[in-house]
Computed example of a mutant assay.
Amino acid sequence: MKFRSAKYGAIDIGSNAIRLLIATVNILGDEQPLFKKTSLVRVPIRLGQDVFTKGKIGKRNLKRMIDSMQSYKLLMNVHGVESYRAYATSAMREADNGHEIAAEILEKTGINIEIIEGTHEAAIIAMTDLHAFIDKNKVYLYVDVGGGSTEFTLFAYGKEVASKSFKIGTVRLLNDMVGRELWEEAEDWIKDITTFYDGIDLIGSGGNINNIFKASGKRYGKPLSYFYLSSYYQELQTYSYEERIYKLGQNQDRADVIIPACRIYLNAMKWSKAKNIYVPKIGLSDGIIKSIYNAEMGE
């Protein structure tokens, strides 16, 4: 039986961090391909702090981006990556010098960065194992929280019903850049699309909800309740930023954004009347890997 193994790379340039995922895809005959995460590297370059407050990426973060891309290129070479894609989301999308930065990084590192819209981001994430996780007899609101934006997608009985991206992100919230009007717009949209459905569950993705799920000690596949998430949110606020780093063992770039992330998930649960949130640990990087594979296979 014919066997093939290939390695692909996915670079996700977000508002809070830049990630490199290297995945191995194993194919045996006519069997379904198996995707295995080989390496995951995360660098906390908070581009959103520059962009959302000053409108552009500063020189210091440009240098850090160039260093990161050079490192990522070397890592992909060492791993023998056959193909890769690098996608930038909210921060570079809104930066006045976003395309200029992408051109400079291409010239100095050879890494070609594609700046994508929120709808494209949601479509890529939909290529992950999300559909395998969804019960076709149930209704879910998928919530992907990033530093610059949050993508909401409603799945009803196995089909996508609606999807929308809002500029409500953790880094924006830290900088008090999300007004009441935007919160109300998101609330109205969620209530409107979920009004005809009962028993909705949330599916959460993003580094913050993954961190919360890990801290819960729950077994993979089991949900977190609204009560648990609300209690954890309250508990987090009893610690200072420094205590969340020292006592809870959180990374410096996680200890501040985790609180506004909780707020977004809790609001989404409240507005959709969801009692549980599932955390399948999928994201843009996983979708990028799948999109590369599909393109290679001509699908």
Rank of each mutant, 00 (worst) to 15 (best):
Q252P: 04
K247T: 02
K247L: 04
N251E: 15
N208R: 06
E242R: 15
G217T: 03
S230F: 15
I258E: 05
N208L: 07
A215P: 01
R244E: 05
R219T: 09
Y232F: 11
S230R: 15
K218V: 10
Q252N: 13
E235F: 10
I212K: 01
K214S: 14
T238Y: 14
V257G: 07
Y232M: 06
F213P: 05
Q234Y: 11
Y232C: 02
A261K: 07
Y226Q: 00
G249I: 00
D253E: 09
K218L: 12
Y233H: 15
K218Y: 12
E243N: 08
S225A: 13
F213M: 08
E242Q: 15
Y246Q: 00
L224A: 04
T238N: 13
G221L: 15
G207V: 08
L229D: 03
N210P: 06
I259F: 13
R244A: 00
F227M: 09
Y220Q: 14
I258C: 00
Y226H: 03
A255W: 15
K218G: 06
Y228D: 08
K247F: 10
N210S: 11
D256T: 00
S231I: 10
Y232S: 02
K214I: 10
L229V: 10
K247M: 11
N251I: 09
K222H: 05
F227H: 08
C262N: 01
V257S: 12
Y239R: 05
I258P: 04
I259Q: 13
Y239T: 01
Y239L: 03
Y220F: 05
N251V: 10
I245T: 05
I245C: 09
Q234T: 07
D256Q: 07
P260E: 14
Y239G: 04
C262Y: 01
E235D: 14
I212Y: 02
I245Y: 11
A215K: 08
I258F: 03
G217A: 10
I259C: 10
Y232K: 07
L236W: 13
T238V: 11
L229Q: 06
N210L: 05
I245F: 14
Y228S: 02
S240Y: 14
Y228A: 00
E242A: 15
P223D: 03
Y220V: 04
K218F: 10
Y226D: 04
V257R: 06
P223Q: 03
K214C: 06
L236A: 09
